[in-house]
Amino acid sequence: MTDHHGRTESADPMLISPGSARALLRDAPWRRYAVLGDSIAQGVGEASAGYRDIGWADRVAEVLTAVHPETAYLNTGRIGATSDQLLAEQLAPVLEFRPDLVHISCGGNDLFHPGGDTDRLRANLETAFSALAATGAQLCAFTVADVWETERMAPMRPMRPRMAELNAIVRDVAGRYDAVLVDFWDHPLRLRPDLMSTDLIHFTTGGHAVVATEMIRALAARISAAAGSI
């Protein structure tokens, strides 16, 4: 089965094969992977024909578990979560889980509406990153993609400046905590006409597959860099 643009998961040029993904993470030192945040963290999105119906974080966890079966995985992400709710409801369970690899994806709901408080968002993300970094865990994050150029996304175009603000905050905070950061703002994925679900907010599962590939590549680069510094 293929999507209406002729792609399949096995022949998508933006994806790596399952075998390649496992090879990239074969030397991963992490055994407890946690993801916290909003619907992006949770992996919400409509199914794409030709792609497995699975979110990006579950895909990354799948590869980590394939190479190290003892890997434990926790995802506390939920639809609509703000950074206030992340701190109040998700941070403690994740800290209790004792992850050594943790991904934070939050902030879009804080700034979705006009008047979103960027200072409060920055402070909340700082609190979350600081608390998790203090455990010695490797932190990860990514920026949102600039999807608003396509005609289909025209109704959502007023969001673009606020999402650019979100990205600036994420880049800054992630950089200060040495997080593995994947910057999707200019990624060619953003121009795929079938990228967005009908809500025009969430990626389809075809998009999630590409996100997972880029996260796996970034984690592999960190593994290689760490090995080279020994």
Score class of each variant (00 low, 15 high):
26 R>P: 05
142 F>Y: 12
185 W>C: 01
39 S>I: 01
80 G>P: 03
77 G>K: 03
189 L>H: 05
196 M>N: 01
206 G>R: 15
139 L>N: 07
10 S>E: 15
178 D>T: 04
189 L>K: 05
90 Q>P: 00
174 A>V: 02
153 M>G: 07
203 F>Q: 10
98 R>P: 02
187 H>F: 02
59 R>Y: 03
229 S>Y: 12
8 T>F: 07
98 R>A: 14
55 G>D: 03
227 A>S: 15
160 R>K: 03
169 I>H: 05
125 L>K: 13
75 N>K: 01
189 L>V: 12
125 L>I: 05
8 T>S: 15
73 Y>M: 03
45 G>Q: 08
109 N>Y: 03
27 D>C: 00
57 A>K: 04
72 A>Y: 06
208 H>L: 05
99 P>F: 05
180 V>G: 04
16 I>E: 14
220 A>D: 10
85 Q>E: 13
30 W>K: 14
51 Y>F: 15
155 P>W: 02
188 P>A: 04
205 T>V: 02
68 H>M: 13
160 R>L: 02
114 P>H: 10
32 R>E: 01
17 S>I: 02
183 D>L: 05
154 A>G: 08
13 P>N: 06
210 V>M: 01
153 M>E: 07
167 N>A: 04
24 L>K: 05
137 A>D: 12
221 A>D: 15
214 E>R: 03
184 F>P: 01
54 I>H: 08
60 V>G: 12
171 R>Q: 14
193 P>V: 04
74 L>G: 08
29 P>W: 09
51 Y>I: 00
217 R>A: 07
115 G>D: 11
61 A>V: 01
174 A>W: 08
97 F>M: 07
108 G>V: 09
202 H>R: 11
153 M>Q: 11
135 T>C: 09
47 A>M: 07
198 T>R: 15
168 A>H: 14
177 Y>D: 01
82 T>N: 00
114 P>G: 12
98 R>S: 13
171 R>T: 11
25 L>A: 11
1 M>F: 13
94 V>Y: 06
54 I>P: 00
210 V>S: 06
154 A>Q: 10
33 Y>H: 04
127 T>A: 09
108 G>M: 10
186 D>L: 11
187 H>G: 07
41 A>W: 04
93 P>S: 07
62 E>Q: 07
110 D>L: 09
25 L>C: 09
66 A>K: 01
9 E>A: 12
211 V>N: 12
58 D>M: 04
88 A>S: 14
224 S>G: 00
180 V>Q: 02
116 G>A: 04
52 R>G: 14
101 L>S: 10
36 L>I: 06
111 L>T: 11
88 A>W: 05
168 A>T: 15
108 G>A: 12
152 R>G: 12
202 H>P: 01
166 L>P: 00
35 V>H: 03
159 M>G: 05
48 S>I: 01
185 W>E: 13
52 R>L: 13
92 A>D: 14
205 T>H: 11
200 L>W: 01
66 A>C: 03
185 W>I: 09
54 I>G: 06
118 T>Y: 08
185 W>D: 12
128 A>Y: 13
150 T>F: 13
120 R>I: 10
